[in-house]
Measured scan of single mutants.
Amino acid sequence: SHFELRVGTITLHFDNISEELAEELEKLAKNGVHADEIRRWWEEWLK
């Protein structure tokens, strides 16, 4: 499923992401983690 995450002024787009993972990314964003860090985390997870 597709997921969009708003982090400050940036909107990150994720394809084929589980609800659980989407929730984890939302938690990171709410805790003030920068969009670049979240994207890096996601790319690492995909490997």
Rank of each mutant, 00 (worst) to 15 (best):
D36N: 09
E44A: 10
E37M: 09
E19W: 10
E37L: 08
T9F: 11
S1K: 14
N31L: 13
E23Y: 14
W41V: 14
I10Q: 10
I10K: 03
E20L: 06
F14G: 01
E19Q: 14
H34D: 14
F14P: 00
V33T: 13
V33N: 09
R39H: 08
F3V: 04
F3M: 03
F14M: 02
A29T: 05
A22W: 08
E4M: 02
R40N: 10
E19R: 14
S1P: 04
G32W: 06
I17M: 04
I10E: 15
W45R: 04
L5K: 00
T11Q: 03
L25A: 04
K30G: 08
W41N: 05
G8H: 03
G32K: 04
K47T: 11
A22T: 08
L5H: 01
E43K: 09
W41E: 05
W42H: 12
R39A: 09
E20D: 10
V7L: 09
S1I: 15
T11Y: 05
L28M: 15
E37F: 06
K47A: 13
E19K: 14
E43N: 09
L25C: 02
R39L: 15
L5G: 01
E4T: 02
E23H: 15
D36E: 12
G32I: 05
V33W: 15
A29C: 05
L46H: 10
W42I: 07
A22E: 08
N31A: 13
E24L: 11
V7T: 02
E19I: 12
R40F: 07
H2I: 09
V7C: 04
W42P: 00
E20P: 04
D15R: 05
T9G: 15
A35F: 08
A35L: 11
R39E: 09
K27N: 12
A35S: 05
R40M: 11
E19F: 12
I10T: 11
L25R: 00
D15A: 11
L12G: 00
G32E: 06
L21N: 07
E19Y: 11
L25M: 04
K27A: 12
D36R: 04
E43G: 05
E20I: 11
R6K: 15
V33A: 14
E19V: 12
N31E: 12
A29V: 11
L46V: 12
E24T: 12
E19H: 13
D15E: 11
I38T: 02
E23K: 15
V7D: 03
H2V: 07
T11D: 03
E4C: 01
D36I: 06
H34K: 12
I10P: 00
L21Y: 03
R39G: 05
L5T: 00
N31Q: 13
E4V: 06
L12H: 01
W42D: 00
S1L: 15
E43T: 09
